[in-house]
């Protein structure tokens, strides 16, 4: 098992993944580094990758015509960036920008999608992991909407 496969296996996101799949995913990975402020991907672009943050921080942003750029989430080390690669039409829904020098592992989604189509066990496993991630993010977004830190009804 290569060092990269070991590192991937140690990530919570890939915990318990079969070694054969770890090898396959590692083969689709390449390093990617971004300077502070640099765009990683843009809303509307082809979602042909997903990322795991090594060091640094990544802001997921959305452009609102009347409020400018809004940060909807900030992701740090060991967190996954991007799920749009999994579902047609494979288009990014947000912008992603490096907030500081950021080192990522970039996974080639085209290669992974083909592997998932070939081997449905891999596809099902990855789908479960990403579905869980998306539910976590959805819940986080709902809590943000509930404004848990200051209840508007209390007037404070």
């Amino acid at each position: 098992m290569s060092a990269l496969e070991q590192d991937l296996g140690a990530l919570p996101f890939f915990a318990g993944l079969e070694p054969v799949y770890l090898r396959l995913i590692a083969e689709c990975a390449s390093p990617a580094c971004y300077d502070p402020g640099e765009s990683i991907f843009q809303q509307g672009g082809q979602a042909d990758r997903f990322y795991i943050v090594g060091e640094g921080r990544v802001a997921l942003e959305i452009f609102s015509s009347d409020r400018g750029i809004l940060t909807i989430q900030t992701l740090a080390s060991r967190e996954v960036v991007g799920a749009s690669w999994l579902f047609p039409p494979y288009i990014w829904q947000y912008d992603a920008r490096a907030l500081e020098f950021t080192r990522l592992l970039a996974f080639n989604a085209v290669c992974l999608r083909a592997a998932c189509d070939q081997d449905h066990d891999l596809g099902y496993d990855l789908m479960k992991r990403f579905a869980r991630l998306m539910v976590e993010r959805l819940n986080a977004a709902r809590f943000q909407l509930l404004d848990v830190y200051a209840n508007p009804a209390s007037g404070r």
Binding site: A32, C33, Y34, D35, I40, F101, R103
Partner: peptide, 9 residues
């Protein structure tokens, strides 16, 4: 490229 930047760093 983002990959070249990693090699530089």
């Amino acid at each position: 490229s983002s990959e070249e930047k990693c090699h530089v760093r």
